[in-house]
Design a protein around this nucleic acid. Structure first.
Lengths: 336, 336
DNA sequence: CTGAAAGCGCTTACAG
DNA sequence: CTGAAAGCGCTTACAG
């Protein structure tokens, strides 16, 4: 059996220091100022350090009712983009003295129920939901006061990206190069953000007075085989001279399909991605792509969630992050 | 201010159901069998559901002393490989009714202190440390009973990969193709696993009676520019006909450097990676690489940590995961 | 400045 | 089968 660990509590520290337990608590929580003499405070701190005492976070939470754990739910942890989102969110949360529990929604069909359980069961204070499915967002209504959506369904999603502006920049870039028959490779996931992206694209195409045929639209999931075959549906149509993708991972599928069809990027086909993960610069030629400012988005999400948890009535303007079109070597004028 | 939330506790449920608080507790914790009549149990469950009651996890933890949160410390969350590790660990932990807090050690120089604080402060039950730096492993000695190392410094790391076997397979594959001057692109991070990898490589080269010159060894971090220039130090030496890399991300640098030097893979240069992340199949040509069974490793780590936490004295044989050489299009016989 | 005491919401002997 | 009570380790009025 497990050897008996000598549990060090505020009580044992008090005993060892020859003071009351309340005094230890005051000192350890940094509220000694004006309530405990400097001599006693220093003595208690010394004893606590010597014993290796740390206040029991569970007891503190129970007593104060203040939780300092947040959850972050993202579609797929294996995607480097969400790694970046987590990293920035964790750092922002840490600075506000909070820990972050990461949830992979793709991987756990029960995730909504678990989040609701965790919030109601006081395990976590709240949850940031990045690009949740529409159905998920609905089920989260039960704890809406503890949830903050990023790239969500609602037009006023508290933290969102400027899809209109980004897609416009991408389309203008391609039309500026002379492309008139542009294909669209969408992400085959039931997320509002992908629906919106395609809508913005269509709107720009129409505004430009360009043609768009249904067969120039394909969808695929992000696994490499799936994205390759989804891309091939576009690549095999020689009249398409450029493709815009919902994600850099889909662009990788376009590269693969193009190679198989002997179409050279960018000579025979221009490609634009979405996200600007490091892969974009590992591909050859380097990928032109819409960069999402992951760090700013994650910071805004944490800040807004913490504000919401502190003060439900505070009305905040949504944060809309601008996208930057990184022009690299995968786009150029179509061959005549 | 925040609107008053009507807190639902076992007490309020008891009142609403007309039973004692202990009865509610028994029912909710699933210990009603033989202690509470079925009628009362069903009634309590119905009332609890109607009120949306969830037992307060914090109170339960404080009372039972049982924590169900683990931490997982990995070098860099943005690397898809660690996304996979997290995913599998989270799933295994969830099945054992535990949550996982993810820590990015690369990103937080204070991470060791935080983990120690969390363990001693009873926020987490224990921590899995994946490829910690040697210095970190030393500082974690204070909570060694709550820590489990993966790919660690210790020769008996409880969960490790079979580097010897893997590197041997890679070297044998290349020598079998006829390569005799093989370069090594190492990861420039102070981790024991990378030191071991190179040592295994050298050992195999020597066992084969092959030459190895110091300038055939280069090191780089994983950012694309860094790996490209680190790779270039090898690629620019025409006598090197093959390169083994500590990571697929480094292999991407070799591809980039080779392109710049006009050396065609695999005609002029064979490349072997490490990890088999999805990138390996996005590169062109597809990358031959040593696959690490991330899922099995993560599962073993969670299982072993939970066992250790339950029973300190149980002695377990280390788990050593075999590596599989995935032979793809980036390796072939050297041109004469 | 210091300490005794109540209570956060549970679980778990214990008594009936 | 059911309930009253103690106690997990803190924080925070309250009294002195």
């Amino acid at each position: 059996m497990k050897s008996a660990q000598p549990r060090i509590t505020s009580n044992s520290v008090a005993k060892a220091a020859g003071v009351s337990q309340s005094t230890v608590s005051l000192v350890m929580s940094g509220k000694a100022e004006g309530r405990v003499s400097d001599t006693v405070r220093d003595h208690v701190m010394a004893v606590a350090r010597k014993l290796g005492y740390r206040p029991n976070a569970t007891a503190r939470m129970l007593r104060t009712g203040v939780l300092n754990i947040l959850a972050l739910a993202v579609p797929n942890v294996r995607q480097p983009f969400f790694g970046e989102i987590f990293l920035a969110a964790e750092m922002a949360a840490r600075q506000a003295d909070h820990a972050v529990v990461l949830i992979d929604t793709h991987n756990d069909p029960q995730w909504v129920d678990r989040v609701v359980d965790m919030v109601r069961g006081r395990m976590i204070a709240g949850c940031i939901v990045y690009a949740g499915d529409s159905a998920d967002e609905l089920k989260l209504a039960e704890i809406r006061d503890q949830v903050l959506f990023v790239e969500g369904r609602d037009p006023d999603t508290p933290v969102d990206i400027d899809l209109e502006g980004g897609i416009e920049a991408a389309v203008e870039h391609l039309t500026g190069l002379g492309h008139v028959r542009i294909g669209y490779l969408g992400a085959d996931y039931p997320k509002a953000t992908f629906q919106k992206r395609f809508d913005c694209f269509l709107k720009r195409i129409r505004a430009r007075g360009l043609e768009f045929r249904p067969e120039w639209h394909s969808k695929a999931t992000f696994e490499i085989e799936a994205s390759t075959s989804g891309a091939d549906a576009l690549v095999r149509q020689p009249e398409i001279t450029a493709v815009i993708c919902d994600d850099d991972l889909l662009a990788a599928g376009v590269y693969r399909a193009a190679r198989q069809r002997m179409r050279v990027i960018p000579r025979d086909l221009s490609v634009v991605g979405f996200n600007d993960i490091e892969l974009a610069r590992m591909l050859s030629p380097e990928l032109t792509t819409l960069a999402i400012p992951a760090e700013r988005i994650a910071q805004a999400a944490v800040r807004k969630l913490l504000e919401k948890l502190k003060d439900l009535t505070s009305v905040q303007a949504p944060y809309k992050a601008g996208l930057e079109l990184k022009i690299r070597a995968s786009t150029r004028s179509p061959a005549r």
